[in-house]
Design a protein around this nucleic acid. Structure first.
Length: 278
DNA sequence: AACTGTCCCTGCAAGC
DNA sequence: TGCTTGCAGGGACAGT
């Protein structure tokens, strides 16, 4: 499931291989992937444009074009952005193909079609992409002083996990990294945010920054079913460093005393050590 | 404001 | 072996 580290890994690939290239033509397979606008709008918006940069906010990839518009791609559950040779065999569920002028292609592949691709006018972002306009602080791309986290946790009695998952509060953390971050910070997922003291807040801040940074360095996490890969088709390796996600029933490797429990919180699977997370 | 549930979709695994 | 069923999950949305 692509979260901030996986999307950042894809962004770096796009920065290296696609920025500066011209998109000469575009194919759209399944219309569902361009549902926010339409097949015609995506093709018209991309054809004969140059990609100027590869940016990211939270889990959103944002590629400014020389037309003044911006290409947005969101991978949601099972999306992949792949850089391919024009002669290579198309993968199943390749819904958008952008042909570059160097006989290379960018593919948007997504079996579950939760992901989406859209070209929008950045001056109208509040209207055309309100979910991007409303994103909260990005712990990697933005300044994220620990006092900012202090302000956030003191502002609400919501449980920590749903707070971390709320993209309008902190952008980029998903189910996997929320569990890993809370374990590192030794905090229970259901702890009310305003119940943690300053020392716990500093631990939480360090956990967010350190885990996301380490996961980016490892190229993200490639889990069993979702099969995340980067732009060049390479898997990540951060799953080897997971402490709780997907380890329910195992002994906690950190404290050596507790067992990893799995519960459902807000309809999402949640993993934590009942001993060292309080 | 904060919560719960539902929907979208496909691939995979478990169970019969 | 071959079917059905359930589960995974991000985010929008509706209802409480």
């Amino acid at each position: 499931m692509p979260e901030l580290p996986e999307v950042e890994t894809v962004r770096r690939g796009l920065d290296r291989h696609v920025v500066g290239q011209r998109i000469v033509s575009v194919e759209v397979g399944r219309e569902r992937v361009v549902r926010r606008t339409s097949r015609v709008e995506l093709i018209d918006g991309l054809t004969d444009t140059v990609v100027l940069a590869a940016e990211r906010r939270g889990k959103y990839l944002l590629l400014p074009l020389d037309s003044g518009n911006v290409l947005m791609m969101h991978l949601r559950m099972s999306g992949q952005v792949l850089f391919a040779d024009a002669r290579s065999h198309r993968r199943a569920h390749t819904h958008v193909v952008m042909h570059l002028d160097n006989r290379r292609e960018v593919w948007f592949v997504d079996p579950r079609t939760f992901g989406e691709v859209v070209v929008f006018n950045p001056d109208r972002i509040a209207v055309e992409l309100p979910c991007v306009a409303a994103l909260g602080v990005d712990p990697i791309a933005d300044e994220f002083p620990r006092t900012e986290l202090r302000r956030i946790v003191r502002s609400t009695s919501r449980a920590l996990k749903p707070l971390l998952l709320d993209q309008k509060v902190i952008a980029g953390i998903g189910n996997v990294y929320a569990d890993e971050v809370l374990h590192r910070a030794r905090l229970r997922p259901n702890r009310p945010a305003d119940s943690i003291d300053a020392a716990a807040t500093w631990r939480l801040h360090a956990a967010i920054v350190d885990i996301l940074t380490s996961a980016i360095a490892a190229g993200g996490s490639t889990l069993g079913d979702a099969q995340y890969v980067d732009l060049m088709g390479e898997s990540g390796s951060y799953q080897d460093q997971h402490s709780v996600y997907g380890r329910s029933g195992e002994r906690c490797l950190t404290c050596g005393r507790g067992w990893i429990r799995r519960t459902i919180s807000g309809g999402r699977s949640t993993h934590y050590c009942a001993w060292c997370q309080r």
